[in-house]
Every structure is written in structure tokens, then in C-alpha cells.
């Protein structure tokens, strides 16, 4: 009971700290709005070939380019912000969570609180991004699309935490900008990758979730349920790695 109370306290303090930062809250709304709206506004309204699954078969179907672009720009936005949030949460944790350990917090309580803050930020950013997108484009299967977005954003949030534990802030920012941009924006974008993706592209965090988003956003059937499952497995593996790294960081500080 005491453990739950401590976790709740640490979580609510972490959340209040973010909520008190009006500049951050403003940016979390303004940046997705500007970026996603702009992407829709300036993209040519022409039909483009999109490679996706239809009735279990990989096929190429014509789709309006603004819709395809929106399906890619929306997850890039939330993945970028979640990744940077994870990076800075981990950097901050390295500096401060040792003190919580000194006053009797267990590592798992601090970890749960930090993950809670990251999850909340991720859900907020995902909700804002999808809300902005819906003004211009409505996916064929909204809830599948939302599920894939949340899984992808959480995965990048945790990747950000891992990066934050491994490298300094500058290197971390470089990595957490370039990784999602190349992964989601270029290597998983069906406009650019018209043939079967290379094996290494399939190892990137965006592969399975973006497949789901392209499928459920642009086609009438749902052919990528298995991909959503793999996305969750990927997320779980990253989460286990992050917990392990976080635990080590906390113990290091206690030592």
C-alpha cells in the first residue's frame, strides 16, 4: 500500500512538473498543429501508387497523396516528441532519482512513476496529432490507426529513454531527431519505398506500426492485425530493456 502511494506521489509530482510548464504545453499543441496542417495544405492532390496489403496480398493501389503524406507525417510528429520526451526524462532521472532512492523509494516505484509520466505525455501528443489529422483526413479504421500510433509513439518514447541512458544530451537529440525521421519519414514511407523493403528496414521501430497505419488508414480491410501484434512485442522488448537500464542507473546512483 505504501509502495502504491509512493508511486502515485512520484507520478503526480512528475506530472505536475510538466503541467506547470506552460511553454512546453503550448509547444505540444502548436507544433503538431503547424506541422501536420502544413503537410496537408501544401501536398499535391494527385493519386500516387501505394504498396500495401489488400485481402492478404501485397498490392499497389492509387491513393490521394495528401492522405498518404498525412498517414506518415502524423506518426512522425508524435514519435519525435515522444522520443525527445523520453530522452529528457531519462537525463533528468539520472540527475534526480538517486535522491528518491536515498529517502527510501524502491527502484520499481520510481520506474513506474517515470513510465507513467512518459505514457501520459505520449498519449497527449498522440491525441493532439490525431486530432489535428482528423481535420483533413479520416482513417478507414480509426481505432486500429490510433492503436498503432500509440504503440509507435510509446516505442519511440522508450527508445528515447534508452538513448538518454547511453549518450549525452547533444548526441541524444541528434539521434532522436534523425532516427524517427529516417525510419518513419523515408524508410517506411510507401511513397518512397515502392518495392519490398530491405531486411534492415524491417528491424526499425517504425516498420510494423506504419504498416498497420498505411493499411488501416488507406484501405477498407484490416490485413495487418499480426503487424500490430509484432509492434506490441517490439514495444515490450524495448520496455524490458529500458526497465533494466533504468534499474541499473538507479542502483548506480544509490551506490
Amino acid at each position: 500500500m505504501v509502495g502504491v502511494s509512493r508511486t502515485t506521489t512520484a507520478f503526480s509530482i512528475g506530472l505536475r512538473e510538466q503541467a506547470r510548464n506552460y511553454v512546453l504545453l503550448g509547444l505540444l499543441i502548436v507544433l503538431p498543429f503547424a506541422f501536420i496542417t502544413l503537410a496537408f495544405a501544401v501536398t499535391q492532390d494527385v493519386q500516387m501508387p501505394v504498396r500495401t496489403l489488400v485481402d492478404g496480398e501485397v498490392t499497389t493501389v492509387p491513393r490521394a497523396m495528401p492522405d498518404v503524406h498525412g498517414v506518415i507525417m502524423t506518426p512522425i510528429t508524435s514519435a519525435l516528441i515522444a522520443g525527445l520526451a523520453g530522452l529528457f526524462l531519462m537525463r533528468e532521472a539520472r540527475d534526480t532519482d538517486g535522491r528518491l532512492a536515498v529517502v527510501g523509494y524502491r527502484a520499481r516505484q520510481v520506474i513506474a512513476a517515470r513510465f507513467g509520466v512518459l505514457t501520459t505525455l505520449t498519449v497527449v501528443v498522440t491525441a493532439v496529432s490525431i486530432g489535428v489529422m482528423l481535420a483533413d483526413f479520416w482513417p478507414e479504421h480509426l481505432w486500429w490507426f490510433v492503436a498503432a500510433m500509440i504503440v509507435l509513439s510509446m516505442t519511440y518514447g522508450l527508445v528515447g529513454m534508452l538513448v538518454g541512458a547511453a549518450v549525452n544530451r547533444l548526441a541524444g537529440m541528434w539521434l532522436m531527431l534523425i532516427l524517427p525521421m529516417l525510419d518513419i519519414g523515408l524508410f517506411q514511407d510507401p511513397l518512397f519505398i515502392q518495392s519490398s523493403p530491405d531486411w534492415w528496414m524491417k528491424l526499425l521501430p517504425g516498420y510494423h506500426p506504419v504498416r498497420v497505419m498505411v493499411d488501416t488508414g488507406l484501405t477498407s480491410g484490416v490485413d495487418t492485425a499480426a503487424s500490430l501484434g509484432w509492434s506490441v512485442v517490439y514495444l515490450a522488448v524495448i520496455a524490458v530493456c529500458t526497465v533494466f537500464v533504468y534499474y541499473r542507473e538507479t542502483r548506480f546512483h544509490r551506490g
Partner: peptide, 26 residues
């Protein structure tokens, strides 16, 4: 850093998209 990096990153991405003669843009 968090807020600053968001501003720089999104500005650079919009800039690259709009200034880069993207064939996607009209």
C-alpha cells in the same frame, strides 16, 4: 533543452520540406 529542441527540430523539418523543392509539395 526539451522545449528548445522541439522548436529547432520542427522548424528544420518544415524548412527542409518547404525549401527543399519537395516533389510532394504544391
Amino acid at each position: 533543452l526539451f522545449e528548445g529542441s522541439l522548436v529547432v527540430v520542427f522548424l528544420a523539418m518544415m524548412d527542409a520540406f518547404l525549401s527543399g523543392d519537395s516533389p510532394l509539395a504544391a
